[in-house]
Design a protein around this nucleic acid. Structure first.
Lengths: 102, 102
DNA sequence: GGTATAGTTTGATTAACATCAAACTAAGGA
DNA sequence: TCCTTAGTTTGATGTTAATCAAACTATACC
Protein backbone atom coordinates (compact mmCIF):
# COMPACT_ATOMS: atom_id res chain seq x y z
CA UNK A 1 0.00 0.00 0.00
CA UNK A 2 1.08 3.57 -0.62
CA UNK A 3 3.20 4.95 2.20
CA UNK A 4 1.77 7.62 4.46
CA UNK A 5 2.24 11.16 3.17
CA UNK A 6 2.38 14.15 5.45
CA UNK A 7 1.01 17.51 4.38
CA UNK A 8 3.26 20.49 5.03
CA UNK A 9 1.86 23.96 4.38
CA UNK A 10 3.73 26.68 2.54
CA UNK A 11 4.99 28.94 5.31
CA UNK A 12 3.75 32.00 3.46
CA UNK A 13 0.24 30.57 3.81
CA UNK A 14 0.47 30.05 7.57
CA UNK A 15 -1.17 32.96 9.37
CA UNK A 16 0.54 34.28 12.49
CA UNK A 17 -2.50 33.39 14.57
CA UNK A 18 -2.18 29.75 13.54
CA UNK A 19 1.49 29.55 14.47
CA UNK A 20 0.83 31.22 17.80
CA UNK A 21 -2.12 28.95 18.50
CA UNK A 22 0.18 25.97 17.94
CA UNK A 23 2.46 27.31 20.68
CA UNK A 24 -0.37 28.09 23.07
CA UNK A 25 -0.14 24.59 24.56
CA UNK A 26 2.76 23.98 26.97
CA UNK A 27 3.17 20.45 25.69
CA UNK A 28 3.84 21.69 22.18
CA UNK A 29 6.23 24.35 23.41
CA UNK A 30 8.14 21.52 25.09
CA UNK A 31 8.27 19.56 21.83
CA UNK A 32 9.66 22.52 19.91
CA UNK A 33 12.18 23.20 22.65
CA UNK A 34 13.33 19.64 22.56
CA UNK A 35 13.84 19.80 18.81
CA UNK A 36 15.78 23.03 19.16
CA UNK A 37 18.06 21.42 21.75
CA UNK A 38 18.49 18.14 19.95
CA UNK A 39 19.52 19.64 16.62
CA UNK A 40 18.63 16.38 14.96
CA UNK A 41 15.55 14.53 13.82
CA UNK A 42 13.51 12.92 16.55
CA UNK A 43 10.77 10.32 16.36
CA UNK A 44 7.54 11.06 18.22
CA UNK A 45 8.16 8.33 20.77
CA UNK A 46 11.53 9.82 21.75
CA UNK A 47 9.79 12.68 23.53
CA UNK A 48 8.50 10.47 26.34
CA UNK A 49 5.26 12.39 26.60
CA UNK A 50 2.75 11.35 29.23
CA UNK A 51 -0.33 11.57 27.05
CA UNK A 52 -1.82 8.79 24.98
CA UNK A 53 -0.54 8.00 21.48
CA UNK A 54 -3.58 9.62 19.92
CA UNK A 55 -3.07 12.88 21.80
CA UNK A 56 0.63 12.98 20.97
CA UNK A 57 -0.19 12.43 17.31
CA UNK A 58 -2.61 15.36 17.51
CA UNK A 59 0.08 17.66 18.94
CA UNK A 60 2.55 16.80 16.21
CA UNK A 61 -0.08 17.40 13.58
CA UNK A 62 -0.83 20.82 15.09
CA UNK A 63 2.85 21.75 14.95
CA UNK A 64 3.03 20.51 11.36
CA UNK A 65 0.04 22.65 10.37
CA UNK A 66 1.52 25.59 12.24
CA UNK A 67 4.58 25.34 10.00
CA UNK A 68 7.02 24.36 12.73
CA UNK A 69 8.07 20.88 11.70
CA UNK A 70 8.61 18.54 8.81
CA UNK A 71 7.71 14.91 9.32
CA UNK A 72 8.84 11.97 7.23
CA UNK A 73 8.29 8.26 7.50
CA UNK A 74 11.31 6.11 8.30
CA UNK A 75 10.57 2.46 8.83
CA UNK A 76 8.01 2.07 11.59
CA UNK A 77 8.66 5.47 13.05
CA UNK A 78 8.32 9.00 11.74
CA UNK A 79 11.06 11.54 12.07
CA UNK A 80 10.44 15.18 12.90
CA UNK A 81 12.66 18.17 12.37
CA UNK A 82 12.23 21.90 12.60
CA UNK A 83 11.84 24.03 9.48
CA UNK A 84 14.42 26.22 11.10
CA UNK A 85 15.60 28.69 8.46
CA UNK A 86 12.28 28.88 6.69
CA UNK A 87 10.40 29.47 9.90
CA UNK A 88 12.80 32.13 11.11
CA UNK A 89 12.35 33.94 7.82
CA UNK A 90 8.56 33.83 8.06
CA UNK A 91 8.24 34.59 11.80
CA UNK A 92 11.50 36.20 12.91
CA UNK A 93 12.16 35.85 16.61
CA UNK A 94 9.39 33.40 17.41
CA UNK A 95 11.61 30.36 17.83
CA UNK A 96 14.03 32.49 19.81
CA UNK A 97 11.24 33.03 22.32
CA UNK A 98 10.94 29.29 22.73
CA UNK A 99 14.70 28.99 23.20
CA UNK A 100 14.65 31.73 25.82
CA UNK A 101 11.73 30.21 27.70
CA UNK A 102 13.16 28.75 30.92
CA UNK B 1 -15.96 52.23 48.91
CA UNK B 2 -12.47 51.18 47.92
CA UNK B 3 -11.73 51.85 44.25
CA UNK B 4 -11.34 48.92 41.89
CA UNK B 5 -7.84 47.47 41.77
CA UNK B 6 -6.51 45.65 38.77
CA UNK B 7 -4.07 42.79 39.16
CA UNK B 8 -1.05 42.87 36.86
CA UNK B 9 1.28 39.89 36.86
CA UNK B 10 5.03 40.14 37.04
CA UNK B 11 6.12 39.59 33.45
CA UNK B 12 8.75 37.13 34.60
CA UNK B 13 5.90 34.96 35.90
CA UNK B 14 3.97 34.93 32.63
CA UNK B 15 4.70 31.74 30.69
CA UNK B 16 5.19 32.04 26.94
CA UNK B 17 2.22 29.76 26.30
CA UNK B 18 -0.03 32.08 28.31
CA UNK B 19 1.02 35.17 26.41
CA UNK B 20 0.53 33.39 23.10
CA UNK B 21 -2.86 32.04 24.17
CA UNK B 22 -3.90 35.65 24.82
CA UNK B 23 -3.08 36.38 21.18
CA UNK B 24 -5.01 33.38 19.90
CA UNK B 25 -8.23 35.40 19.57
CA UNK B 26 -8.47 37.80 16.60
CA UNK B 27 -10.37 40.31 18.70
CA UNK B 28 -7.50 40.55 21.17
CA UNK B 29 -4.93 40.82 18.40
CA UNK B 30 -6.96 43.75 17.09
CA UNK B 31 -6.91 45.38 20.52
CA UNK B 32 -3.13 45.04 20.77
CA UNK B 33 -2.66 46.35 17.25
CA UNK B 34 -4.86 49.32 18.01
CA UNK B 35 -2.83 50.13 21.12
CA UNK B 36 0.38 49.84 19.13
CA UNK B 37 -0.95 52.28 16.56
CA UNK B 38 -2.50 54.70 19.03
CA UNK B 39 0.59 55.14 21.17
CA UNK B 40 -1.61 56.48 23.97
CA UNK B 41 -3.95 55.16 26.61
CA UNK B 42 -7.34 54.03 25.39
CA UNK B 43 -10.50 53.28 27.34
CA UNK B 44 -12.23 49.97 26.59
CA UNK B 45 -15.19 51.69 24.96
CA UNK B 46 -12.94 53.50 22.49
CA UNK B 47 -12.31 50.25 20.63
CA UNK B 48 -15.86 50.09 19.28
CA UNK B 49 -15.98 46.33 19.58
CA UNK B 50 -19.09 44.51 18.46
CA UNK B 51 -19.35 42.12 21.39
CA UNK B 52 -21.24 42.70 24.60
CA UNK B 53 -19.71 44.63 27.49
CA UNK B 54 -19.13 41.44 29.43
CA UNK B 55 -17.24 39.82 26.58
CA UNK B 56 -15.12 42.90 26.00
CA UNK B 57 -14.27 43.00 29.68
CA UNK B 58 -13.18 39.36 29.45
CA UNK B 59 -10.84 40.10 26.54
CA UNK B 60 -9.15 42.96 28.37
CA UNK B 61 -8.72 40.79 31.42
CA UNK B 62 -7.10 38.09 29.29
CA UNK B 63 -4.64 40.60 27.84
CA UNK B 64 -3.93 41.90 31.35
CA UNK B 65 -3.18 38.38 32.59
CA UNK B 66 -1.08 37.71 29.52
CA UNK B 67 1.12 40.65 30.51
CA UNK B 68 0.25 42.83 27.53
CA UNK B 69 -1.50 45.77 29.14
CA UNK B 70 -1.78 47.90 32.25
CA UNK B 71 -5.23 49.11 33.24
CA UNK B 72 -6.04 51.93 35.59
CA UNK B 73 -9.29 53.50 36.69
CA UNK B 74 -9.96 57.08 35.60
CA UNK B 75 -13.36 58.40 36.55
CA UNK B 76 -16.03 56.15 35.11
CA UNK B 77 -13.74 54.63 32.53
CA UNK B 78 -10.57 52.60 32.70
CA UNK B 79 -7.52 53.37 30.65
CA UNK B 80 -5.37 50.74 29.02
CA UNK B 81 -1.85 50.96 27.77
CA UNK B 82 0.74 48.49 26.56
CA UNK B 83 3.56 47.43 28.85
CA UNK B 84 5.73 48.11 25.84
CA UNK B 85 9.31 48.15 27.10
CA UNK B 86 8.73 45.55 29.76
CA UNK B 87 6.97 43.24 27.37
CA UNK B 88 9.63 43.60 24.70
CA UNK B 89 12.23 42.73 27.30
CA UNK B 90 10.33 39.62 28.41
CA UNK B 91 9.24 38.44 24.94
CA UNK B 92 11.55 40.12 22.43
CA UNK B 93 10.09 40.28 18.95
CA UNK B 94 6.59 39.11 19.80
CA UNK B 95 4.91 42.48 19.40
CA UNK B 96 6.95 43.03 16.25
CA UNK B 97 5.34 39.92 14.77
CA UNK B 98 1.93 41.39 15.48
CA UNK B 99 2.97 44.64 13.81
CA UNK B 100 4.40 42.81 10.79
CA UNK B 101 1.34 40.60 10.21
CA UNK B 102 -0.73 42.08 7.40
C1' DG C 1 2.09 -15.74 8.00
C1' DG C 2 2.34 -14.07 12.66
C1' DT C 3 3.92 -10.75 16.00
C1' DA C 4 5.73 -6.43 17.53
C1' DT C 5 6.43 -1.42 17.10
C1' DA C 6 5.10 3.29 15.76
C1' DG C 7 1.68 6.32 14.47
C1' DT C 8 -3.04 7.69 12.76
C1' DT C 9 -7.91 8.05 12.92
C1' DT C 10 -12.38 7.83 14.97
C1' DG C 11 -15.85 8.37 18.51
C1' DA C 12 -16.83 9.85 22.94
C1' DT C 13 -15.89 12.55 27.09
C1' DT C 14 -14.21 16.40 29.39
C1' DA C 15 -12.21 20.86 30.01
C1' DA C 16 -11.59 25.64 28.22
C1' DC C 17 -13.15 29.36 26.10
C1' DA C 18 -16.32 32.93 23.73
C1' DT C 19 -20.45 34.74 24.14
C1' DC C 20 -24.69 37.07 25.99
C1' DA C 21 -28.10 38.93 29.23
C1' DA C 22 -28.79 40.59 33.52
C1' DA C 23 -27.50 42.09 37.98
C1' DC C 24 -24.00 44.68 40.15
C1' DT C 25 -20.21 48.47 41.41
C1' DA C 26 -18.21 52.90 41.15
C1' DA C 27 -17.81 57.54 39.61
C1' DG C 28 -19.77 61.87 37.53
C1' DG C 29 -23.23 65.18 36.74
C1' DA C 30 -28.07 67.04 36.93
C1' DT D 1 -30.80 61.93 45.42
C1' DC D 2 -31.54 60.27 40.95
C1' DC D 3 -29.81 59.18 36.54
C1' DT D 4 -26.16 58.10 33.33
C1' DT D 5 -21.87 56.06 31.86
C1' DA D 6 -18.27 52.53 32.07
C1' DG D 7 -16.94 48.45 33.27
C1' DT D 8 -17.19 43.88 36.22
C1' DT D 9 -19.20 39.66 37.67
C1' DT D 10 -22.28 35.82 37.43
C1' DG D 11 -24.92 32.22 35.36
C1' DA D 12 -26.08 29.98 31.29
C1' DT D 13 -25.24 28.30 26.52
C1' DG D 14 -22.66 26.98 22.42
C1' DT D 15 -18.25 26.03 20.40
C1' DT D 16 -13.67 24.55 20.18
C1' DA D 17 -9.79 22.01 21.88
C1' DA D 18 -7.49 18.28 24.75
C1' DT D 19 -7.89 13.87 26.03
C1' DC D 20 -8.44 8.72 26.01
C1' DA D 21 -9.50 4.05 24.40
C1' DA D 22 -9.95 1.28 20.66
C1' DA D 23 -9.68 0.10 15.97
C1' DC D 24 -6.79 0.69 12.14
C1' DT D 25 -2.37 1.24 8.82
C1' DA D 26 2.23 0.48 7.72
C1' DT D 27 6.75 -1.34 8.42
C1' DA D 28 10.18 -4.58 10.40
C1' DC D 29 11.56 -8.91 12.00
C1' DC D 30 10.97 -13.78 13.14
Amino acid sequence: MAPKRYEHPELADVPLAKALAALSDPCRVAIVRRLLDAERELACHEFELTQSKGTVSHHFRTLREGGFILTKVSGTECLNRLRLEEFNARFPGLLDLVIAEK
